[in-house]
């Protein structure tokens, strides 16, 4: 076995793992025997230990006192804002309306998103929708929202510069990978809470990215005819 094959164990060793504490762990035992005769690994262990010790004693950066005041004010402001404008930046009215329309049309997810964004008040608005949200898995609400927003974003893609389009496409691909990985983990362990949370986070982020795409396209100039038509259709 060469040094590289022990990479994970070298980290474990620096973190305090020892073969004497893990009698059944033959790889760790083998690594310790390798370590005894390998100057390279000994140097890595010494340096990584110094790094770890120094990192663990780095001090905190204190947040300024005004931060809590800002947070409290922004929560108060959000509680007064319509549920379909949760984003922190200004979104052109037509885009906000189009995005909201997409959500309303396509989801019970509107119900779910409203519930997520306005836990105190929104459920009353959302419950009046004719659907029965509690009977539909949360993931389906997201999928419906994503499908609608994706359609809207696709229709406006042309107004973005090619580099931005490429970056957005790349970010969506990263999110799609995260969604696939979470689903694969859930296929193995349906009750895995971390995988469930990761999946919902990734879906949530994808919705936010698509909303941002719609807003960004509008910022690049007037909405394209196709986008305007899509917005009209959604209304």
């Amino acid at each position: 076995m060469n040094c590289e094959s022990y990479e994970d164990l070298l980290g474990d060793y620096v973190d305090g793992a020892r073969a004497t504490d893990r009698p059944g762990d033959e790889r760790l035992g083998a690594f310790e025997r390798h370590l005894a005769g390998c100057a390279r690994c000994q140097a890595l262990v010494a340096d990584f230990t110094s790094l770890r010790d120094a990192a663990s004693t780095l001090g905190d950066h204190a947040p300024p006192q005004r931060l809590w005041t800002r947070i409290a004010a922004s929560i108060e402001e959000e509680q007064r804002r319509p549920w379909w404008r949760p984003l922190g930046h200004a979104v052109p009215a037509w885009a906000a309306v189009a995005a909201a329309a997409a959500l309303v049309l396509l989801i019970g997810g509107a119900t779910w998103l409203a519930w997520r964004h306005e836990p105190a008040q929104a459920p009353q608005q959302a419950v009046s929708a004719p659907t029965e949200p509690e009977a539909i898995p949360v993931e389906q609400h997201y999928e419906a929202a994503i499908a609608g927003l994706q359609q809207l974003a696709d229709s406006q893609n042309a107004s973005l510069d090619p580099e931005t389009r490429a970056v957005l496409k790349e970010n969506l691909a990263v999110l799609d990978r995260a969604i696939s990985e979470s689903r694969a983990a859930l296929a193995d362990e349906p009750e895995n809470a971390l995988a469930q949370a990761s999946l919902l986070d990734a879906l949530d982020t994808k919705v936010a990215l698509l909303q941002d795409t719609v807003a960004l396209a509008a910022d690049e100039g007037n909405p394209s005819d196709e986008a305007a038509a899509a917005a009209k259709e959604l209304n």
Binding site: P63, P64, R70, I71, I75, G88, W115, R116
Partner: peptide, 23 residues
Amino acid sequence: AEDLLQEVFLQAHRKLAGFRGES
């Protein structure tokens, strides 16, 4: 960092309804 943490806590405030205590 100040701007980001403000957004994080705003997001946390929205998402607390989904906190189930698994972590």
